[in-house]
Design a protein around this nucleic acid. Structure first.
Lengths: 210, 210, 210, 210
DNA sequence: GCATAAACGAGACGGTACGTCCAGTCTTCCC
DNA sequence: GGGAAGACTGGACGTACCGTCTCGTTTATGC
């Protein structure tokens, strides 16, 4: 099964979709998001400002939420930083701090909100989560498995839970707002987590290797 | 300094607000929330079903979101379970499992969504967070400080971060949905955290009390 | 440069306005007017009963008053009777009696009220006046000028004032209600006016011919 | 026969109505009428600006229209000018010109509108008509009957119709607005009417008796 | 002089309607 | 024959007033 859906190589009948319209829509959606926030991103407003018909928008996205996610994704990297150097701990700390930095912005809050508000089952929501969340998780996962291979750490419990405990606090503070997203926050997360991950041979939290 | 502003003991002029109307609104809002979800909670629908004028609703709440939060709050306990027994670890595990249980429901998802979607600055949103989130935190905090006093654990970093790492993963999975909110999830969180908190004496994360 | 904007013969983009919707609105408005009167003609009621969205109504008329006028106009002739026969006096009498007949109905009162209540400057109010009032005036004017040409009457003063004195009493009694709009009313108006219009050659209003 | 129903001299129990409140209401209503017109005269606005409770207003008037009429009546004379001098024609002309003058004002239009819009059957509407309309008619009637007694004119048809033809054109132009309410308008009405009223001895406007 | 009763201000009540915004769908032209 | 654009139906918004109804207060009369 080969796919030729990305670009119609053989003549599809009918008028081809206007790439200019698509770009204008995303551009306008992004402007509105930055200027007025998620709540003001209505299909109608986008259509008017992008000089585009509403059905043209609906042809690409099923509702305003999906458009918002698409606009937020199209915008800028969002990917975790490139592979760092140094010890696993340093690399993990850099990773969390990069996450913090990325989401400690107006856009960060918008992304978190969009994700929380979205229909959990929609295709785009999954893509969005994958893009925004899972990439960070995979990066962290590789750091952790590398570290385990090196003997730097011992993964005693489900690594998924470790990943949750590393990333969740950032989004939690972002959405709940009970505590600031300070610089030291990332450091503290790593400190705590490292205590849990340190390989031990005595009594305490962890089992001896032998 | 005594306050009598909560209940007007001395005569305020004008017809007093109808407590019956207020209750009917909250009751109806809650019914709609349970039956149809947050998206269907419109002021108009509540007004009609509660046999109440729309302005009466707006007198109490500024929009449907605030009403939703009020209805979710008025509903049921939401408080963390009463003080458990046994070791600190067992009590903390019971605490996290209770949190999991509470939010692994339709209503749990609704609460999380309402919180994520709400205007972060509104009075009611703050009250809601306080009610839903902070009570759990305070409960966990007291377990942790007790445990520290007993020497069961050693709090080496900011306790706020510890609390985040204990609670955030639940909401994270709830909103992002990348992994299930299984029973073992709570156990794994506690396992990992306990490794970080255990007092140790050798190298590694912690020192033993000895 | 020719204009073809009055009627779009060549394609305007977008869905054309639904003539069916427009007719349903006017039809419903008319039904409500007849059944319940001007005061009950609300946009909301019309929208609901005509199975039409409120914005569709507002796309054509700016408020309920304009809709009322449009409905009253669209309804039935409202025009003065066709040219009669006989002497100018007989034709003028028939004219006034037709006016009386037309407005001695529920609808007549409604029309008069709508006209009195309307914003004097609105486009539709002008059109309405033109349709309801001025057509009658023009008809009467032609009778009078014909009669003058024949020597049947002599127009000694401003013909506009004559027209006012012929028509105004009908609306006056309609709105004020101090006296009935009886059959003999029209006759009396003509009698009085004819005394004023009779051609004379001597002193006073009139002189015997011989 | 003495009446003591206007002011209760014998003791009615309870607090007497506040004349100050009544005056404040009428005063405020009048201010709003002059400043913003009939459409803005709401009970709520009057209550607020007059520092009065809404029920106090409803105690006197059944709705905003009645209040409007009351305010318009309470305002200024509205009566026809005192008896003039000179010939009947001169006095009648003065009368019509006074009517013109009175209603060629913002307030004139408001009065005419209020009268046209009012429930024809309500007590106050009747009183209002009586006050505004009938007083003028009675004045004109007395001029006409005096003139007939003097032989200045001959009333050949229903005097009510004559009165209508004298007064109606003013209100007609006021409400319909098809022609200006100029100074010469009154003169022309009188000219035309006088032609109809002149006593004759031959045939002409009227048929000789024999 | 003290109870009674009505009118007072204030303001919340259930409602109706407003005029607007936006969601999605439908219909027509144009490419 | 699909894309584009605008009018469509319809649901909800938040506001303005309606006319009614408590409230607690004030101000008279009459027991």
């Amino acid at each position: 099964m080969s796919q030729d859906n990305s670009k119609p190589p053989v003549g599809k009948p009918g008028r081809p979709r206007s790439e200019a319209a698509r770009r204008a829509i995303l551009q306008t959606a992004h402007e509105i998001l930055v200027a007025d926030g998620l709540g003001r991103l209505t299909i109608e407003a986008v259509a008017e400002r992008a000089r585009v018909g509403k059905p043209t928008i609906y042809r690409y996205w099923r509702n305003a939420q999906e458009l918002a996610m698409a606009a937020l994704m199209a915008d800028t990297p969002l990917e975790p930083a490139a592979e760092g150097h140094g010890s696993a701990r340093m690399r993990l700390q850099a990773h969390v701090e990069h996450l913090l930095e990325t989401f400690t912005t107006v856009r960060g809050r918008q992304i978190a909100q969009a994700m929380a508000a979205a229909d959990q089952e929609s295709e785009l929501a999954k893509a969005f989560r994958s893009r925004v969340i899972l990439q960070y998780r995979e990066k962290a996962r590789s750091i952790l498995t590398d570290a385990q291979a090196n003997g730097e750490i011992a993964l005693k419990t489900d690594i998924e839970v470790i990943l949750d405990m590393l990333h969740a606090p950032v989004f939690y503070r972002l959405l709940v707002g009970h505590q600031p997203l300070s610089q030291s926050f990332g450091l503290n997360i790593i400190d705590t987590m490292w205590a849990a991950l340190a390989p031990t041979n005595g009594r305490g939290a962890t089992l001896p290797k032998s």
